[in-house]
């Protein structure tokens, strides 16, 4: 029985990773169409991706919007998470449930409503505004990570700082933020990823001016499945991998700190 279970789990793990691995391999294919396994390897699809002005612009917009969304969501989320963990607030769970709503409400509805308003205000294609909209969707991710982090920060250290005459601002800047730094960086990374991968809101809000990578992939997929998309996908997968790797080392850092008694 144990052997069947182990076999099943192994098979499922292979199945889970297979699509991602195969797309990355296809991105390096030398053939003009999608052929697996590839007969020759080349970087031509990456060259086409980075050599194309529109794809490059899409990469740039994705990065900029991701940075804006990540900054807003992490800052706002940090204060909210701090209040939820430290303050004696009634109905904490209810407040949290409201803050998590953006991931529960179907994104199509959110996106259309945002578009409806943005069109009236002339904000379609405005990078800063798209960043704000993405920040709303990234906020739940930030909150969940920071709630866990701040719960692990010893409240006595904050009391000590306050009793030694530290101001609120200093308390945040010199005590809370440094202690929670690994978690804050993690939260920022995942907030960036949430925006970087977001498709539906971008689909409605970017217009033709500020198309992001997922939007360009979406538009290309409706026309044909060409290997350039495999290369773009490989880049997106690479960035996801990088974020996960950074997060893993941040976790180790966090564990080392709590182990050392801070």
């Amino acid at each position: 029985m144990q052997r069947i279970l182990a076999g099943y789990v192994t098979a499922m793990c292979l199945l889970l990773m297979a699509p991602i691995v195969i797309v990355v391999i296809l991105a390096f294919s030398g053939a003009g169409y999608l052929q697996f396994p590839p007969t020759a390897l080349s970087l031509r699809w990456f060259a086409r991706f980075l050599g194309d002005d529109q794809w490059r612009a899409a990469l740039w917009y994705s990065l900029v919007i991701g940075a804006i969304a990540c900054t807003i969501a992490t800052t706002i989320g940090f204060f909210a998470a701090y209040a939820l963990v430290r303050r004696p607030i009634a109905a904490k769970k209810l407040l949290l449930s409201l803050l998590l709503l953006p991931v529960i409400v179907p994104t199509v509805i959110t996106a259309i409503a945002m578009y409806f308003l943005s069109a009236r205000l002339g904000l379609v294609g405005n990078v800063l505004w798209i960043g704000c909209c993405h920040a709303v969707v990234a906020l739940p991710v930030v909150l969940l990570i920071l709630l866990a982090t701040l719960q692990g920060v010893d409240v006595n250290l904050e009391r000590a700082a306050l009793s030694l005459g530290s101001s609120r601002l200093r308390l945040f800047l010199r005590v809370v933020v440094p202690l929670a730094a690994p978690g804050i960086i993690s939260a920022a990374l995942f907030a960036f990823l949430a925006s970087f991968d977001e498709l539906i809101i971008s689909l409605f809000l970017t217009g033709i001016r500020a198309q992001t990578l997922p939007v360009r992939i979406w538009n290309s997929l409706h026309m044909q499945i060409e290997p350039t998309i495999a290369a773009v996908s490989a880049v997106l997968i690479g960035i996801t991998g990088l974020v996960l790797l950074l997060d893993a080392s941040l976790r180790r850092w966090r564990a080392a700190r709590t182990g050392a008694g801070t």
Binding site: L16, M17, P19, I20, V23, F190, L193, F196, D197, L199, P214, I217, W218, L221, S233, L236, I237, T240, G241, V243, L244
Partner: peptide, 9 residues
Amino acid sequence: VPYFTSIIV
């Protein structure tokens, strides 16, 4: 890894 990979990808 799949969980955090873009849905479109």
